[in-house]
Computed example of a mutant assay.
Amino acid sequence: MAEGKFLRLDKAISQVTDLSRAEVKRAAKQQRITVNGVTVTDPASKILDTDELCLDGDLLTEAGPRYFMLNKPLGYVCATKDGEHPTVLDLLDEPNKHKLHIAGRLDIDTTGLVLITDDGQWSHRITSPRHHCAKTYYAHLADPIEDNAIDKFAKGIWLNNEKKRTKPAELEILYRNEVRITISEGRYHQVKRMFGALGNRVLELHRERIGNIILDEELSEGEYRLLTFEEIASVTEPEFVEPENSAGDTD
């Protein structure tokens, strides 16, 4: 027999499907599971991780790393579970959603690009406090923005209860009270607080870009798609992130 690691049958199947242990037990009793072509009815049976598992005749295999972009609507929280609000994972029709996590969170009242994956090292490149990653937002403000705000953002903004200025940020004025801002760190509610420090208030905030990954214009709110190979690879390219002392994911 090929060398490998021993697992309980019910655990092995629950890891590669959406079935709970109890559901695997019922499937086994119903003779729907085979191991190397042999029907197995005991869910506690020990199998090797190299064994061929089939459910209803379909081969079960461990899925590789998954990478998604989602256009987050208002009212959804970036969490795996929440007792009061729907989560962005509720919008995904994918198996084993409990294995996925959000790489770059947004507030419940912020919309736009969210990246979701089960690849911890990949998401670490986006969210680690020891790295920074450029993020671009569209903001609709309560009041007209002053022209000198561009220079103020470029120099960094003093935020309330912070010991140092923010890192230089790029501000583009689109209209009197509409702007596009790119930040390269992730302090708590940073974008909203930066405008608040100038006596303004963010009415709408929408994330358009994370590093080299741009929100797909074809995605309506609540829709998602797999990332392309180029989008996935861009996260590990040197220009995507670089060492930094700032921390956190924010808007």
Rank of each mutant, 00 (worst) to 15 (best):
F68I: 07
E84V: 13
N96A: 15
L53A: 02
D58A: 14
G104K: 03
P73M: 04
T117L: 00
D107H: 02
C54Y: 01
L74W: 00
D93T: 15
Q121D: 14
L115G: 01
Y67N: 04
P73D: 01
R125G: 08
H85Q: 09
G112A: 10
L53I: 02
G120R: 06
N96Q: 15
G57N: 12
L92S: 15
V77N: 05
H101R: 11
G120K: 08
G83T: 09
L74Q: 09
H85A: 15
M69R: 05
P73H: 04
C54R: 08
H98Y: 13
G83E: 15
A103H: 01
E94C: 12
V114Q: 08
D56Y: 05
L115F: 00
D119F: 00
G57A: 07
H98K: 14
D93M: 13
T61C: 03
V77S: 05
R66F: 02
Q121T: 11
R105E: 07
K72T: 13
V77D: 02
L106E: 05
L74Y: 02
T111R: 05
I108H: 03
R66M: 06
K81V: 11
L91H: 05
N96I: 11
D90R: 15
M69T: 11
G104M: 03
K81E: 13
V114S: 12
E94G: 14
T111K: 03
T111Q: 14
H85D: 14
T61G: 01
W122M: 08
D90E: 14
G112D: 06
A79S: 15
P65H: 02
T87D: 13
P73V: 04
I102M: 10
V114C: 09
A63K: 13
D118N: 10
C54Q: 11
Y76C: 11
E94W: 05
T111D: 10
P95Y: 00
E62C: 01
T80D: 13
T117Q: 00
P95A: 14
P95E: 10
I116E: 03
E94K: 12
Q121N: 10
L53C: 03
H98A: 13
A79G: 12
